[in-house]
Structure formats: structure tokens, C-alpha cells
Amino acid sequence: MNRAAILWRVASILVAAGFIAAWQLIANLRLVSPVFLPGPDRAWAALVRGFSSGDLASKLIGTLEHMAYGWLAASIAGIALGALIGSSRMMRAYVAPSLEFLRPLPVSAIIPVAIAMLGLTQGMALFVIAFGAIWPIMLATIHGFAAVEPRLYEVARSLQMSRAAVIGRIALPSALPDILAGMRLSLTVALILSVVCEILAGLDGLGQWVLLSARAFRSADLFAGVILLGATGYLTSIAVSLVEQRLLAWQTAAR
């Protein structure tokens, strides 16, 4: 970063600090009832208190676990199914249109069905999160496989490579940028569905924490939970972007 960029960054942080100060002022002057809007000081205190007593940390870990298991299951299943469908022209012709129909379906609508089948359990939450997170990954994989340079397939045929070898050595690396973009997208879906499932099924996690705080009108705890959820969304998406950059470094180098 050059000096101008750093200066802009500092100015930008100052602007954000200004907004927080305005929030504090609004809360202090009681323009909005403190029942709904705690000042940033109270929210921060609730955050510190929650972590020092260990409650908030265990909720955070609960949400992270739901998110991670569901997302990993979706990634594995999504890439496998996507590779299966994307690597065969016949599968693409027969299956892809049905998937396109399912894509705009609000995935949360599957929650009642999952509850009917699995009850209000961890398994239900995992199923819902994985089901929701699988779409961006699977569709991105199919798209990536379909967009592989056709001459590469011809090369593979003339080298008499097996189908597994074609998938592993040609199609997957070439579709990797699409797949990783899909995985980043589905991370957000996984976080949202984790929160919804925790709210509905009362599973240990930040979703349950914010709902219970709201029910008890403990607005400082509520805001602490929301801030933590924002931080979770931000940090996980940055982590995946970093992995993405690393894995795709060969591509920028090749260009």
C-alpha cells in the first residue's frame, strides 16, 4: 500500500468512528428508547461480559460448528455431484433443467420438511444447512465443467485417459475458480441458515442467543450477538478469499 491509500484508509476508519460516536450520542440523549437501542458502550460491555463468563464463546463455537459441518458436507457433495453431472453431456441434458427450476426456490422453505422428517435436532440443522449451501457449489461446478476448453478433452481422448483421470487432472483444476467462487457464496448461505435453525430449534448457538436476549429485552446482549454474527460473516469470507487467492495463484502467474 502506498501512502495515499493508507491515508484514505485512516480517514475511512475515522468516518466509521464518527458513525459510532453518533450512535453513542443518540443512545445517550435517549432519542431512541434504550430498551431497543443500547449505546455502543453497553453493547461492548455486554460483549466483554459474555466472553469473560464463557457463555458467548460457547454460543459462537456452536454457530461456527453448525456452519462448518454443513458447509463442508455441502462442498464435498456439491463438487462430487457437480462433477458427475457436469462431466457427462447426457446428465447435463436430463438433470440440469430440473436443477435450474430448483435454484430460485427459497431454500429455507425446506426447513418445515426437514423438521417433519428429523425433528428439532442437530441432524435437521445439518441437513438444512448442507441442502442450502450445496446449490451454489454444485451449479458452479457444473458450469465450470461445461466451460472447460473442449480441446483439452480432445487431448485427454487422444491420450486415452480414464474418466476419473479426466475429471481429476483436467476438468477439476480448470473449473476450480468457479468452484471456489461457489463455495464463498454458499458460506453466507450456511451462516444464515445456521442462525435460522438455531432460532427455530433452540440449538446452542448465536441464533438462540439473540432470540433469547430479544425475548428478555436485554438489548445490549442482543447487539453483542449481532456484532459477533457480523464479525463471523466478515472473517470467514476473508479466510475463504485468502485460500482462494492461494489456490489460484498458478492461474494469475500463467496469464
Binding site: W8, R9, A11, S12, I13, V15, A16, F19, V35, F36, T188, L191, I192, V195, V196, I199, L206, G207, V210, L211, S213, A214, F217, S219, L222, F223, G225, V226, L229, G230, A231, G233, Y234, S237
Partner: peptide
């Protein structure tokens, strides 16, 4: 550039996390 940090701080909040705030 001035709003960058503010936007990046608010955007990642999952919309559904606002549900309890909107509710009360």
C-alpha cells in the same frame, strides 16, 4: 473511500440476525 470501512463493517451482518432487533 471514506465510507469503505463503514460499509464493510455493516454488510457482512446476516440479514436474519437483524430479526430479533426488528422484532423488539
Amino acid at each position: 473511500r471514506l465510507m469503505e470501512v463503514t460499509v464493510e463493517a455493516i454488510r457482512p451482518i446476516p440479514s436474519i440476525a437483524l430479526l430479533p432487533i426488528a422484532l423488539i
